[in-house]
Nucleic acid binder design. Sequence first.
DNA 1: TAGATTGTTAATCGATTAACAATC
DNA 2: TAGATTGTTAATCGATTAACAATC
Lengths: 216, 216
Amino acid sequence: MEKEKKISNAVVRRLPKYYRYLGDMLKNKIIKTSSKELSEMTGFSASQIRQDLNNFGGFGQQGFGYDVKNLCEEIGKIIGTDKKYNIIIVGAGNIGQAIANYTGFYENGYEVRAIFDKNPKMIGLSIKNNVIVDVDDMDEYLANNEIDMAVICTPKMVCQNIADRLVANGIKGIWNFAPTDINVPKDVALENVHLNESLFSLTYYYNQNLNNTDEN
Amino acid sequence: MEKEKKISNAVVRRLPKYYRYLGDMLKNKIIKTSSKELSEMTGFSASQIRQDLNNFGGFGQQGFGYDVKNLCEEIGKIIGTDKKYNIIIVGAGNIGQAIANYTGFYENGYEVRAIFDKNPKMIGLSIKNNVIVDVDDMDEYLANNEIDMAVICTPKMVCQNIADRLVANGIKGIWNFAPTDINVPKDVALENVHLNESLFSLTYYYNQNLNNTDEN
DNA sequence: TAGATTGTTAATCGATTAACAATC
DNA sequence: TAGATTGTTAATCGATTAACAATC
């Protein structure tokens, strides 16, 4: 078995950006590109881009550059966008509804299979092709359906409980929008979207800029 | 004038998490804490926490620890949550609506002053206290109202145009939810929430875990 | 062939961790 | 006073950048 070098989180976070720009180029029928060109688009240094790509193999051709279609496909394979994923959404409040309508799922092979909520007023309503189901029925649903990932859009009070139940039912990927940290076993992939932390970071830099301008 | 040491982005990203846990402790009437305790809560090392805090000043007491209330207030001041902010939302689609209903704004002193959209079917409808206004009237609105930050929730085709108009009208903070990169002058704070990139990172780690499990 | 650009090693830079003196 | 924990310096670690040989 090949010993795989551990890919740093910093690299992983850049892959989707490469993938997006390459997809754009592909749509515009651009055949070749280079680390220099990708650098201008992404803002990452050309050297860093070459380093990043060479973590996964030599996708380029010396003296020429990279074939856009090939590189895009290869990065897609690394990320895993070449596969299909069944997902569920837990919590049909503001964020849950927005996520249920999120076109990025359908454009990239993710299919929303079910939406759960505990509010009786929500249960039975439809979002896109899905009827909202009582969250009490979630465990049974998961036991009987092949679901890959779940999106947590519940209030923070219940999100750890939901996460525990998801994990107990074999879910191995969680996209968490609840504004708190949850604990999952290390074989479960967890991605947090903490809007509050994002807004506060923005606020810090906003004030930083104001202060710097004042000083002049 | 004191020469301010540049705070690294990594530190800035950790501040909101300290702030959140300290707020939780405050709510639970906990008086004192320590870098060790904060380490257990946040997952950051105690050493790193002390380093982070000492970028901004000595908030602790040797041999004792940190006063929760004081430290929480100090970090609030550093982030800027002690101030009020007027914001507008541009784009009243799925994400825009979710953001308009986002309780984090009201809980932290951010006030949504206006919501803009270009869809005639949306214009005139209300979200919370705000009537959705024609985006053609945005520039005039900004010229006549004191707005601090804007949230961009438009399709990616128009988001650079929106950003340019926001900047032209003096907006210095932009929270961008459109799935693309936008360019703003460096005195404008920009925070991107790229859901597609977040989902792809999750997908990468999801597959990584599956592969590692397979190998055993 | 000459020019261009990758792949890869080495150098640099910055962030994290370790250690411990200061001191409450 | 003894114990605890900060503030801060030094050591380590890891990521980014620079440089250049390989080669198309």
